[in-house]
Amino acid sequence: MTFDTLYFDIGRMDRLSYRETFVHRLDPRAKVIATILFLFTVISFPKYEIVALAPFFLYPVLLLTVGEIPVRFIIKKMIVVSPFAVFIGIFNPILDTRTAAVIFGVSLSAGWISFLSILLKFALTISAALLLIATTSFPGVCHALRRLGFPALFVSQLLFLYRYLFVLMEEAMRIVRAREMRSFGSRGTGMKVFVRLIGILFLRTMDRAERIYYAMLSRGFHGDIPSLKRSRIAFRDLAFMAITIAFLAVFRFLPITEGIGRVA
């Protein structure tokens, strides 16, 4: 992806997370915990499972629709990060060719089943992770992590990173634009220029860190980054958690999909 795409992409994600919907208003802790449980449940399915994974699409679909997140945007982002899983997974049908099933006369090898299983798990886990941040502001996620016991120092790193991500990306973009304007065709994108660009960006970052430190001192900073508690767990958060857990448990342990198929 080009720099600009990445930049606008992350900006769009960030803006989505500040919307006001039912999902956005849920307590970040509830969403973080629900997401983690969801991910665990999905990857706990064995290698050749595909059928029982189907109901789990309900979770991302509900977040997507109730949270009013554009489907295409999420799908695009999923495709962008898919190469590694696909690349590793595609070896399964090549290497594991034992016939595992004959469905409507077509024989299916075990490799294809396990590959399909990887793809389904990929779609479920990635969409759940993306939807967490699309429906929860990043500072919200950080406060949730802090209150779930992550070290304060680490959480303050995340918050600084988030705050200056956009500022530094803009700075990097200006530097890249300047490079592109003066490098005709391929010249100017080699190692030397690249290192120089990163070096300049680094020096500017250092100067900025110094100014930020000064600004912090001016407002009484003495080693701790204080923050106020912001949210309280409300009834709807507990309800959301309870329903999610029940949903995960039911579809993890009961062969419902199959049952539906048999009845039909």
Partner: peptide
């Protein structure tokens, strides 16, 4: 503290 955070953003950018 600010230095680490801003350097994280630097690596990202």
């Amino acid at each position: 503290i600010p230095l680490m955070g801003v350097l994280g953003a630097f690596i990202f950018a």
